[in-house]
Design a protein around this nucleic acid. Structure first.
Length: 365
DNA sequence: CGTGTCCTTACACTTGGAGA
DNA sequence: TCTCCAAGTGTAAGGACACG
């Protein structure tokens, strides 16, 4: 993946294997077994996904390292060979490196910002160097009047701007030209090479992982689900919460909406004529909320008991739920040793409730 | 209904043979 | 050695379909 772009069919076959492993643990899985679309799974955790790497984007980011190395000041032999008969900003040769550069340069420019030194490796029109956008995007009318397809900042600054434009400009192009000339008056080149940094807030050095992060940043982060992953809970519980956030737990309401169960079976086991939604199952159902308030146990235990009731026809008393929670605390205490004191206190409290609470005898799940 | 799989079709590219 | 052509191969897109 760091040397060539994988064919789409290969990527799809790899994704099919990864998808099947996630949802079934098998080599193949059916669409109906996938609770959430793979695109959503591949979103970052900040954007509501699982943070599984998108192979195509990762492939591009690894290849972008080649493009970045071409922009770096070093004299490795393959770069000397490349520059011996080619221009970084305008290559027409048909070798692997040239094709790679042509295909990836646009993507590279969208995620980098240039700290201009001598201006030699910075595209005047297409790199982001003076503003947060490219000059081609900011001054589209003037850009349409350029005479050379690709010039560096060094070429643009050391020569009159008019020599790189068509002789007759429209009124709006002339206005844009004046703004650009005013901006260029403040540009001073140095002897230092240009620095191509990632276009994030920190202007951090280019890395494949940083490039991937920028490429996958689509829209506003979903702060509610993102905070789920920072909780100190077993991954299994966080995964459960993630499914709950996306409304993909197999509640009766959800199964009914997908026509897996008839509408007559969409009601709560305990509450007559109330549809069993996520919200009802974990919050508003009187029996669940009573247990939830008294016990402060986690919804996964409740859901496991409920599934056992519905799918395996096994009844569970609140005492069973509490016992289950008690056992979970033991499992978690190994994983979270720094919190062992707090977990031990919780375990003691849960045990006391098992003995004393009248709640345990008041109903069954 | 939402999801992934499978099949078909069209297109581009590669390979190998024939002939000039 | 070069050009042309046919067959084979790979790729991508779209739609029908299966499944729970």
């Amino acid at each position: 993946m760091s040397s060539s772009l994988l064919p789409k069919t290969v990527r799809e076959q790899l994704d099919a294997r990864r998808r099947a492993f996630l949802w079934t643990g098998e080599e193949k899985c059916h669409g109906s077994q996938c609770l959430l679309a793979w695109d959503t799974v591949c979103q970052t955790k900040e954007h509501g996904g699982l943070g599984v790497k998108n192979l195509e984007d990762m492939n591009h980011c690894l290849l972008l390292k080649f493009v970045h190395k071409l922009h770096e000041p070093s004299s490795v032999p393959w770069k000397q060979w490349f520059f011996s008969y080619s221009n970084l900003l305008c290559s027409t040769e048909d070798t692997f490196l040239h094709r790679l550069l042509r295909e990836e340069l646009g993507r590279y420019r969208t995620i980098t910002h240039v700290l201009v030194g001598n201006g030699k490796t910075t595209s005047f029109w297409h790199d982001r160097w003076m503003l947060n956008t490219t000059l081609a995007d900011t001054f589209p009318v003037l850009f349409s009047h350029r005479t050379q397809p690709a010039i560096s900042v060094q070429q643009a600054v050391t020569r009159p701007l008019d020599s790189q434009l068509q002789p007759r400009l429209t009124r709006s192009a002339a206005a844009e030209r004046q703004v650009v000339i005013d901006c260029l008056a403040n540009v001073h080149l140095t002897e230092e090479p240009d620095s191509h940094m990632l276009a994030d807030l920190k202007r951090s050095p280019f890395t494949s992982s940083g490039a991937y992060r920028l490429l996958r940043q689509n829209g506003e982060p979903a702060t509610d689900v993102a905070s789920l992953w920072s909780l100190r809970l077993p991954t299994k519980v966080k995964f459960f919460g993630w499914l709950l956030h996306h409304g993909r737990l197999n509640t009766r309401d959800y199964l009914c909406r997908r026509s897996i169960r008839p509408p007559s079976e969409s009601y709560c086991e305990s509450c007559a004529a109330v549809v069993e939604t996520d919200e009802h199952l974990f919050i508003s159902c009187p029996k669940v909320s009573a247990l939830w308030n008294r016990l402060e146990t986690h919804p996964l235990s409740i859901d496991l008991r409920r599934n056992a009731r519905i799918f395996d026809d096994q009844d569970s008393s609140p005492r069973d739920v509490i016992r289950r929670t008690h056992a979970d605390i033991d499992k978690w205490s190994c994983r979270y040793r720094p919190l062992s004191a707090e977990l031990q206190a919780w375990k003691t409290w849960v045990a006391s409730i098992t003995v004393t609470s009248h709640l345990c005898n008041s109903f069954t799940f």
